[in-house]
Each structure stands twice: as C-alpha cells, then as structure tokens.
C-alpha cells in the first residue's frame, strides 16, 4: 500500500530496435503527492519523456516495453498490468498530458471545440453534446483564450503556437485529471509566450489541487514552477531534492554542471562557461558504473566499476555519487557563474 498519489518503483523501460535493445530508463523510483509539482530535468535522450509516458503506458506504435519488476502505483492501482479499458480511463481522468509540440498533438481536421468536447464525452457519457461544448468554451476561457465562443469553432492551424498550447492545457484538464504531465510544454514557444504559458500553469496549480510533473531540459523554468526536482541522466536519477536544496547545495557533479553551464546575470561576460566534456553514453551499451563517470571531472576508478547507491542527505534530498562515500576525497562544488 502506498500513501502517495503516485508511486513509481524500479521503473525500467526499453526499446527494441533492429540493432539491439535500447535501455532508455534503467530503474527509476519516485513518488508524487496531490498538489505538488515534481520536475524531471535532463538532457535529450536521458529518459525523462519515456519515464512519464510509461506512467500511462503511452507508447503509440513504438517498440517500447516496460521491463519486469517495474511498478507504477496510481491511487494504489497497478498501472503496469492495466488492460486497455482501464488505461483509457486512466488517461484523461487520472493523468492528463501536455506535449511539447501542440501542432502535432492536435488533429488538424477537427475544430478545437470538438477535440475538447470529445474528451469530455468520452469519459462521461451522460454529458450532452451541447453541454460538452459549453464546458469546452468555459475551459478555453479558463486557460485565457479570449472570445472562447468563437475559438471553439476554429481549427488548430488558425491559432498561434501559444494559443495551441493553451488548447492542449484545456484538453489535459478537461476531465479533471489528478496529475497533469507537462512534457517540455514551452520548448517550442518564444520567450514571451513561454512566460505566458508558464504563468497559466502556475495559476492552475494555485487554483486546483492537481499534481504536476514537469519534464524539461531548461533549468530556468524549473525553479519557478516545481517544488521538487529530480535530475536524470542516461536513464537513472542522479540527484533529487526540493528546489531550494538543489539550488543551494547541489551534491552531484552533473547537477553542478547543469546549473553552471547556463550563463546567469552575474557570470563573467565572454568568460569560460562551465562545460561538460564529451557526450552522453550510448544507451544500447551496458553501463557498469555511474553513467556520468566518463564525463565527470571528479571521476574515480570506483565510479567506472560500480553504480553508487542513493545517499539520503535530508528527508527530501538524496544523491547517487561516490563522492559521498567516506573514503572519497572531499570536493567543493564549483562556484556559479563560471571561471575566467
């Protein structure tokens, strides 16, 4: 039994490709409570999107599968073993999702009103068509689209990028899901529009008691939106904690690098940015030790041999790194802002 809204244990997801098995997610555990926001941060290919798609068993027609031994408990129900009927109830009523590119996730041949109403009526058959459309208009108003009565009759291509993302948000919240997953919700948007969409998400967070999962590579938007953050790399979680803990005392060299490789207001102009050598590991390979070892400036021989265990630093903060071990040299995090 789990007291959490969502509890994920040892989740592993793989893809079979013609060249072999790609192990995209390699044993990830986390939980989520109502009303809180969890951010999963990492670079492309680190398995963050695969992880959240696994929560709904949403793979489309790709050759992905959840490995044995994984467990996803949503309201104490096991998602991994759910059948098609239970899953379609879960998707929408339990978990809603906002995708990176609203243009490809909206059907271009249907009006946005129809697409919202369809979702409402799919999950609650008792709602009449008129009522569903009325609700759709209300939802559009809620997500800040002006003159919603007219907008519901329009097609996705008639809306701008920011508007489309608002429509996606409306669809995600239409069935009153408990968890809203935002997969790179603002990556395709311009900065000023990004701020508007994030603000809307923040408003929704405050108004409702929904839980949010934000998947992003952009540390800039994480701290303003999430409560807890977990840093993923090559299919594993390297560090997790509240946003304050990760900002004030990051413990993993990868987190240091992520935080410092973005120039901030204080950083020396034209100075050398903190950068990570090399490229992420090939997920087709077996990784014996820490996946970050090859690129880590603090790498020790042990790092390449064995995966470090998760070390709790506080109630909410934990890290997977050999530097935490009593025999390891004491290393200080590099100062933010880069070096000259």
């Amino acid at each position: 039994m789990s007291e959490h809204l969502l509890e994920v244990k040892d989740l592993a997801v793989s893809f079979s490709s013609y060249a072999g098995k790609i192990r995209a997610v390699r044993g990830v555990s986390f939980h989520l409570d109502a009303g809180e926001t969890l951010a999963i941060v990492g670079e492309s290919g680190c398995g963050k999107t695969v992880t959240v798609k696994a929560l709904m068993k949403l793979y489309g027609n790709s050759a992905a599968f959840i490995e044995e031994g994984s467990s996803i408990l949503f309201k104490n129900e096991e998602v991994v073993t759910m059948d098609r009927k239970q899953l379609s109830k879960l998707r929408g009523e339990g978990i809603g999702m906002i995708f990176q590119d609203p243009m490809t996730s909206l059907n271009p041949t249907l009006t946005v009103g129809y697409q919202i109403a369809e979702g409402i009526r799919f999950h609650d058959k008792s709602v009449s068509k008129e009522e569903a459309y009325k609700r759709a208009a209300e939802l559009l108003a809620l997500v800040g689209i002006p003159s919603p009565e007219e907008r519901i009759k329009q097609y996705p291509h008639q809306l701008s990028g920011g508007m489309r993302q608002r429509v996606m948000i409306a669809i995600a919240i239409a069935c009153d899901a408990d968890i809203i997953i935002c997969d790179e919700p603002t990556t395709a948007l311009d900065v000023t529009i990004q701020a508007q969409v994030l603000e809307l998400l923040n408003e929704l967070k405050e108004k409702t008691n929904k839980a949010f999962i934000l998947v992003t590579h952009d540390l800039g938007i994480v701290f303003d939106f999430a409560d807890r953050i977990q840093v993923m790399y090559a299919g594993v979680i390297l560090e997790r904690g509240t946003k304050y803990e990760l900002f004030d005392e990051p413990h993993h060299p990868y987190t240091w690098a992520l935080l410092n490789s973005v120039p901030s207001k204080q950083s020396q102009r034209k100075g050398t940015l903190y950068s990570i050598q090399g490229t992420p590991p090939d997920l087709m390979m077996d990784i014996k030790g820490c996946p970050f070892a090859d690129r880590c400036v603090y790498c020790m021989p042990i790092c390449k041999e064995r995966m470090p265990e998760e070390t709790p630093l506080s109630e909410t903060h934990s890290v997977c790194c050999w530097l935490e071990h009593s025999m390891a040299p004491k290393v200080k995090a590099p100062a933010a802002g880069g070096e000259e």
């Binding site: 090859d294 690129r295 880590c296 400036v297 603090y298 020790m300 042990i302 041999e305």
Partner: peptide
C-alpha cells in the same frame, strides 16, 4: 579506487 582521475 578513490583517487580523482577526472575525464579521460
């Protein structure tokens, strides 16, 4: 095993 070798 705990000597820093850094990036190869």
């Amino acid at each position: 095993m705990f000597v820093t070798v850094g990036v190869d």
